[in-house]
Write a protein that binds this DNA or RNA. Structure first.
Lengths: 151, 151
DNA sequence: TGCAATCATTCACAGTAAGAATGATTGACG
DNA sequence: CGTCAATCATTCTTACTGTGAATGATTGCA
């Protein structure tokens, strides 16, 4: 039978670079699967998360914070609005701006996502000592800093 | 002036889950930018890497190893072939199979990618002690195991 | 021999995101 | 105070990935 010999891994597999890339992709996908029953995708959660910390933000601010084109925020906000998760209101001080706010339902959805994240976190870190977990998170934050990400 | 107040970060930012997802995406993108001048994209490098460790593999084996549809491997292999990086030959023992092999140029390209990865690795881990790096990589491998990834 | 399975390939299609064009509103400046 | 450029949201078009279905060649087995 063909194709049964296990495929060998190569040098790059041992670099943190490679591992971070692959793990990141799988984690995101895992998360995406878990939130799908809520009718959400990762970008939706990204916006919900930002709004939880920054109520009444404009769409443009959200776009730059998410590193995404403004036109994409329109669609994401449309979908969240039709889910009843957010409310759009024109900023009375600047009627060009659309201010976004979480609704009660939006807060509930965000809480669900946080809970899902905690579950996933437990899966990811299973078998690591508390000290190891803290070291990992500290190292990740350091790496994020090296990448110019502000955590 | 609007939009100047820094956007606050939220609870999820402190989880390894969130950090891994975001860092993974940024690392992949950084890598993609660096290999772009070579005419390569991440999937191309993925295939090159597999072929470096597994010469004369069939396209289907590569597809399953890469977790990707066979039809996509066709396109990636087409492009690598037109770059002169790989050679396609029918397997004489099973003429349905197309066996892929790195050419000299393919090996050179792969070496370039390995070098780029090393550079990126140095950037990522800058400021971490040797012991911290080892601990990080060990922890990442552990996490990968929890995700069912075989590193 | 004939038939189902396998591998590669092509094609049509869905999903995601960016960018350009449009329209409303604002603020600055003559 | 009126014009004009800049800003924000929105729509529409387009590019890019990746999947899945249909096709064709080849194989192995009943």
């Amino acid at each position: 039978m063909h194709g049964m010999a296990p495929v060998k891994k190569a040098t790059l597999e041992h670099t943190a670079t490679f591992q971070l890339g692959t793990i990141g992709a799988v984690v995101s996908q895992r998360f995406a699967e878990k939130i799908e029953p809520l009718g959400l995708k990762p970008k939706h959660v990204g916006l919900l998360t930002l709004l939880a910390a920054n109520p009444a933000s404009s769409q443009l601010d959200m776009a730059t914070a998410m590193n995404v084109a403004p036109s994409l925020v329109v669609r994401i906000a449309d979908q969240l609005e039709s889910l009843g998760a957010i409310e759009r209101t024109r900023d009375p001080d600047d009627r060009r701006r659309q201010t976004l706010r979480l609704t009660e339902r939006g807060r509930a959805l965000f809480a669900e996502c946080a809970s899902i994240t905690r579950d996933l976190e437990a899966d990811l870190l299973a078998g690591l000592q508390i000290a190891e977990r803290k070291a990992l998170i500290a190292a990740l934050r350091h790496v994020a800093g090296n990448l110019g990400l502000a955590f």
